[in-house]
């Protein structure tokens, strides 16, 4: 899938995560930046979740920034999904 515009999801609240996505030029690969309040304990797990999600949507070129405040896995998944749908202009049923 192709990222066509800047998009964001989530919040800075505790137990939530902000996901920012930017389009990049084709074939420039995945540029992922992770910042987390539980970096030491879950940094690797968060990175894996992001890569899995990008694989799932078949996204190869992306600039993705996350700022995590201790979100659980379902929340991270949901925020990633929301941001991706918005960045690909596929979001439905919202203003």
């Amino acid at each position: 899938m192709k990222i066509i515009k800047k998009a964001q999801s989530g919040s800075f609240e505790s137990s939530d995560i902000i996901v920012l996505i930017e389009p990049v030029v084709e074939k420039s690969g995945r540029n992922i930046e992770i910042d987390s309040s539980v970096m030491l304990e879950f940094g690797d797990a968060i990175a894996k979740l992001i890569l899995d999600k990008l694989d799932e949507y078949n996204i190869t070129d992306i600039h993705l920034i996350v700022k995590d405040k201790g979100a659980l896995e379902p929340t991270i998944n949901a925020r990633l999904e929301t941001a991706i749908m918005r960045a690909c202009d596929l979001q439905k049923g919202t203003l």
């Binding site: 030491l40 304990e41 879950f42 940094g43 690797d44 797990a45 659980l72 896995e73």
Partner: peptide
């Protein structure tokens, strides 16, 4: 199961 496995210090 809820939080996931913590990477040990």
């Amino acid at each position: 199961a809820i939080v996931g496995k913590v990477k040990e210090v």
